[in-house]
């Protein structure tokens, strides 16, 4: 099937009256890691929110995921089609323990095989198992990020939306997140990764989109993107 997993075209997004995304066209294929870059305030987070209909974004245009037109669906219906969300700022639940986060999210798990269970995310992040009875508000930044990723994984998504997972993390933890991304794509999951930390994202990307003022200004293959960045640095 040549069809993309996610196919966005003519997407406009708004916060109230302010028009943030303009005519965005973007695609993610099965098992691919697609990178979205752009400076602060260019609309990267808004793109991910638009895909999920996450308030307060309002959107118009076509968003086809797994063959379904989702632009008129509500958040929970889109999510249930197989989208996992690791939001900027993590948005954990302070009243829930680590374990409750995972059980709660796993109760919405889709897919027959259930590749990601509590056990397999604990294997991936042993730190979380040690902190399993701790509240979501009492974790370190790195632990919070692991929990945000784990919470998305146990729903067994086909496409993972990650918004600046390296934000506020040390070099070592960034390396862990990077390994996890590689592990996930090799297991067949697709990832749409928003990242400003190019050291992290550069080697991972199959393709990249560059956002400027709410529009896609470049679309490049991973090789082109890496070559460009080298040139910029030199």
């Amino acid at each position: 099937m040549p069809e993309s997993l996610l196919q966005i075209s003519g997407l406009d997004a708004y916060y109230g009256k302010s028009h943030v995304l303009q005519d965005v066209k973007l695609a993610v294929n099965h098992g691919e890691l697609v990178l979205v870059v752009g400076r602060n305030g260019m609309g990267k987070t808004t793109l991910l929110r638009s895909i999920l209909a996450f308030p307060p974004v309002k959107r118009r245009g076509s968003i086809v995921f797994e063959g379904c037109e989702t632009s008129r669906m509500t958040t929970h219906r889109v999510a249930a089609l197989g989208l996992g969300y690791v939001p900027q700022g993590r948005l954990l639940f302070p009243s829930l323990t680590v374990e409750e986060h995972l059980r709660f999210a796993a109760s919405r798990s889709r897919g027959q095989e259930k590749a990601w269970t509590l056990k397999s995310v604990y294997d991936l992040f042993p730190e979380l198992q040690q902190r399993s009875q701790v509240g979501g508000g009492r974790l370190s930044g790195g632990e919070q990020q692991m929990l945000a990723v784990a919470r998305a994984l146990v729903t067994n998504p086909t496409l993972l939306l990650m918004d600046e997972p390296s934000e506020g993390l040390s070099v070592q933890v960034i390396q862990r997140v990077k390994d996890v991304c590689r592990h996930l794509t090799s297991s067949g999951m697709a990832i749409l990764l928003v990242e400003q930390n190019l050291d992290m994202a550069l080697n991972l990307a199959d393709r990249a989109y560059v956002f400027l003022n709410g529009q896609v200004v470049y679309e490049e293959s991973g090789e082109e993107f890496r070559a460009d960045r080298k040139r910029v640095r030199a």
Partner: peptide, 24 residues
């Protein structure tokens, strides 16, 4: 389960919806 869902919803019901739950 409903109790845990309610507690999570009190914290952030948009995120509960983003996990696939019908918050309405």
């Amino acid at each position: 389960n409903l109790g845990i869902t309610i507690r999570a919803g009190v914290d952030n019901f948009n995120m509960v919806a983003a996990l696939g739950f019908n918050v309405k």
